[in-house]
């Protein structure tokens, strides 16, 4: 395992450390996944660059119509944040579903995205919320949509030996917008989901203006239900419409058979139900039904 453990004071110091070690230093936020991956040999590094003491990364703030969630913000911090609850109900719900109290006290929203597990709860919510991420490396700052981060199952396009995600940005909620997160699980704590789905919806004059529907684990990373999203445009959200939206969502899903998380057939059978329920809750949230 690693021989050095450092706490940079700011982001540029972190980037500097990465450069100095030329690929032999790695960013760690909460580390709840990384510590295990270092033990089982998925990763190895000489130096851990712990970013949890960088003050600016520990904040949830408002900036130019966005909610900015720093890379050291934990799941529990997000769940309890009024800003997140008000503007990103799906993220608050998803963050509350991760692991356990002890895990959520350490694990971070951004880490959940960078570890690139297909069914990472908060990442699924962030997909639905059309989040952007700020990536900083020696080359400077870039901002990109969260979709760009997934390179494969458990593989991120972010190389944590070269760069770090400093924050995720979520647009503040507009009138008529709402979101929700729904999870199917085999135990109510300490477990990955069999399926999870997050929805962001925008309703105007009782019609759906736009819906973003994201599902997992049904492919590489969180998957958009594009057919369903197109179908919902300008529809009145009746029971039949939402049912059909659920059915269409399954067309974009390609779950695997898992001896631990359920068969492909079962997951295809219940996915429409989850999507419908998430849509119902998101519409409720848009209408002012709180978190």
């Amino acid at each position: 395992m690693f021989q050095k453990y450092v706490f940079p004071r700011n982001v540029s110091a972190a980037v500097h450390l990465l450069n100095e070690h030329r690929g032999n230093a790695r960013i760690m936020a909460g580390g709840t996944d990384l510590i295990l991956d270092l033990q089982n040999g998925k990763y190895s590094t000489d130096c851990i660059v712990d970013i949890t003491r960088i003050e600016e990364l520990k904040q949830i703030s408002e900036e130019n119509g966005n909610i900015v969630i720093g890379a050291a913000v934990t799941h529990n911090q997000a769940t309890k944040s009024f800003l997140v609850q008000q503007n990103a109900a799906a993220l608050a719900q998803a963050s509350a579903a991760v692991g356990s109290q002890q895990i959520r006290n350490i694990s971070t929203i951004v880490g959940n995205v960078v570890s690139a597990q297909p069914a990472a709860d908060s990442a699924v919510a962030l997909f639905a919320l059309d989040a952007q991420v700020r990536v900083v490396s020696a080359d400077g700052l870039t901002v990109m949509p969260i979709e760009n981060l997934y390179a494969g199952i458990g593989k991120s396009t972010i190389d944590s030996t070269l760069s770090l995600v400093t924050a995720v940005l979520i647009k503040k909620v507009e009138p008529g917008e709402g979101s929700a997160f729904v999870r199917l699980e085999q135990r109510k704590a300490l477990t990955l989901p069999m399926l999870n789905t997050a929805v962001k919806i925008s309703v105007k004059d009782q019609r759906i203006k736009e819906a973003r529907i994201v599902m997992a684990p049904v492919g590489i990373g969180p998957v958009r239900a594009t057919e369903s999203e197109a179908f919902l445009k300008d529809k009145m959200p009746s029971e039949e419409v939402l049912q059909e939206a659920g059915r269409l969502a399954a067309e974009n899903a390609n779950p695997r058979d898992s001896l631990v998380r359920g068969s492909r057939n079962y997951r295809l059978a219940v996915l429409p139900v989850l999507v419908r329920r998430a849509l119902e809750q998101a519409i409720n949230n848009a209408e002012g039904g709180g978190f």
Binding site: Y5, F7, G31, T32, D50, N76, Q102, I106
Partner: peptide
């Protein structure tokens, strides 16, 4: 002040 799993915390973080 927070409950954590000590098996997932690098000791160095306890600085």
């Amino acid at each position: 002040g927070d409950a954590v799993n000590s098996c997932l915390v690098p000791a160095a973080r306890a600085q």
